[in-house]
């Protein structure tokens, strides 16, 4: 199996198979990351599409040595989301209500999962923005520590500390809720 570096190099040379491979590998994570941040399936699809079109447009300028490919792609996604959220005027609480989960057809299962995801998102809102961003990139996008650090422009040590403190804070929130 070719390394990601060689796939990226072929994609830079406009090899459509290589680009399709990168797309396949990163699409779900990018979509999930955007969906949880914007809370609307249609908008998440549009933004995901834009991320890949922008990536295609800019891939000629991508340099492997300066940043891993997934971190580069997530930077594009993050900027798209920031740009989108800046323009959006709707309230976050409204958005949370719109969030739905699409992995099942059984309405009971879908409703249960929706509630779980909503609860999780409501709890994530209680974290600091930096902690929340690390949680999104680490547990939702599943990026390695080094790539989260590159995406956010922070040191690996800082990301480890943010990750640890965020989970400790979430654990306290969950524990408090269980005892209420």
């Amino acid at each position: 199996m070719p390394s990601e570096e060689s796939v990226v190099r072929r994609a830079i040379e406009a090899d459509s198979q290589a680009f399709a491979q990168l797309y396949d590998e990163h699409f779900d994570k990018i979509y999930r990351y955007i969906y949880l941040k914007v809370g609307d399936r249609g908008e998440a699809e549009d933004l995901t599409q834009q991320v890949f079109l922008k990536a295609l447009e800019a891939i000629g300028r991508y340099k492997w040595r300066s940043i891993p490919f997934s971190a580069w792609l997530f930077r594009i996604a993050r900027n798209q989301v920031i740009d989108y959220l800046r323009k959006r005027t709707r309230q976050m609480t409204m958005v949370l209500d719109e969030r739905i989960v699409s992995d099942g057809t059984d309405p009971v299962v879908v409703t249960e999962r929706r509630l779980e995801v909503q609860e999780l998102l409501a709890n994530l809102e209680k974290l600091s923005p930096a902690q929340r961003e690390v949680i999104y990139l680490r547990f939702i996008a599943e990026l390695p520590i080094a790539e989260v650090a590159k995406t956010l422009g922070k040191s690996e040590g800082a990301v480890k500390a943010l990750q640890y403190n965020a989970v400790v804070a979430l654990r306290k929130i969950f524990f408090r809720e269980e005892n209420e």
């Binding site: 399936r41 989960v101 995801v117």
Partner: peptide, 12 residues
């Protein structure tokens, strides 16, 4: 738990 719940989100 976070990872598992997020993994259930899929696009069409």
């Amino acid at each position: 738990t976070i990872n598992k719940e997020a993994s259930s989100l899929l696009s069409a």
